Simulated assay, not measured.
Amino acid sequence: MYFSSSGSGMVKQFATRLGRPVFDLSDRDVRRSVPDGPWVLLTPSYKTGNPDNDTLPEPVRRFLRNPLTRRRLVGIMGSGNRNFGAHYQAAAHHVARASGRPILFEFELQGTPWDLERAREILAELDVRFAEADD
């Protein structure tokens, strides 16, 4: 299961090109849902101009409020802009630190064809791992 947040549309573009169903956290009903199994977060990071401000998108913050949702998170894929300097991938790193889950992959903006292929490989490896765990 895959959930994404995308204020600018770039993460949504990347998520759509993965060829998998992805739930959009901008939808209120999606934000209020609880994943029924393991899931991966695709999140952007936004530079706020103030290093003390959080770069975590509000839809992601709201979705992660549920303890069961947080427990079922298996990893994070982050989008960022290298022009943000120290804020590059800040949201993905914040969620990873807070949840103890790994960053599975980082890409810039909407990703390159190589990024898309690598992300698909990572998700396919997770599919195998989850299928083995179900046996």
Results as ranks from 00 to 15, higher is better:
residue 7 G to D: 07
residue 7 G to A: 14
residue 7 G to S: 14
residue 8 S to F: 01
residue 8 S to Q: 03
residue 8 S to P: 10
residue 9 G to T: 08
residue 9 G to W: 01
residue 9 G to L: 12
residue 9 G to A: 11
residue 9 G to K: 02
residue 10 M to C: 10
residue 10 M to G: 02
residue 11 V to I: 12
residue 11 V to A: 05
residue 12 K to I: 07
residue 12 K to W: 04
residue 12 K to Y: 00
residue 13 Q to W: 01
residue 14 F to G: 00
residue 14 F to Q: 01
residue 15 A to M: 03
residue 15 A to S: 14
residue 15 A to H: 05
residue 15 A to D: 02
residue 15 A to F: 01
residue 16 T to H: 09
residue 16 T to A: 10
residue 17 R to L: 10
residue 18 L to K: 10
residue 18 L to G: 07
residue 19 G to F: 06
residue 19 G to Y: 05
residue 19 G to D: 07
residue 19 G to T: 10
residue 19 G to V: 15
residue 19 G to S: 05
residue 20 R to I: 09
residue 20 R to V: 12
residue 21 P to A: 12
residue 22 V to W: 00
residue 22 V to G: 04
residue 24 D to L: 04
residue 24 D to M: 05
residue 24 D to R: 05
residue 24 D to A: 10
residue 24 D to C: 04
residue 24 D to Q: 08
residue 25 L to F: 06
residue 25 L to R: 01
residue 26 S to V: 09
residue 26 S to T: 14
residue 26 S to H: 11
residue 27 D to G: 06
residue 28 R to E: 15
residue 28 R to W: 00
residue 28 R to D: 14
residue 28 R to H: 12
residue 29 D to C: 07
residue 29 D to F: 04
residue 29 D to T: 14
residue 30 V to I: 15
residue 30 V to M: 10
residue 30 V to S: 11
residue 30 V to F: 04
residue 31 R to A: 09
residue 31 R to D: 11
residue 31 R to M: 08
residue 32 R to E: 15
residue 32 R to P: 06
residue 32 R to A: 15
residue 33 S to I: 08
residue 33 S to F: 12
residue 33 S to N: 09
residue 34 V to S: 13
residue 34 V to N: 08
residue 34 V to P: 02
residue 34 V to H: 08
residue 34 V to K: 13
residue 35 P to Y: 12
residue 35 P to E: 13
residue 35 P to A: 15
residue 35 P to L: 06
residue 35 P to F: 12
residue 36 D to S: 13
residue 36 D to A: 12
residue 36 D to T: 14
residue 37 G to K: 07
residue 37 G to P: 12
residue 38 P to S: 12
residue 38 P to F: 01
residue 38 P to R: 08
residue 39 W to S: 03
residue 39 W to T: 06
residue 39 W to Y: 11
residue 39 W to V: 10
residue 39 W to F: 13
residue 39 W to C: 07
residue 40 V to E: 09
residue 41 L to G: 03
residue 42 L to D: 05
residue 42 L to T: 07
residue 42 L to V: 09
residue 43 T to I: 03
residue 43 T to F: 00
residue 43 T to S: 08
residue 44 P to A: 03
residue 44 P to T: 01
residue 44 P to I: 01
residue 44 P to R: 00
residue 45 S to Q: 04
residue 45 S to P: 05
residue 46 Y to R: 04
residue 46 Y to W: 13
residue 47 K to Q: 04
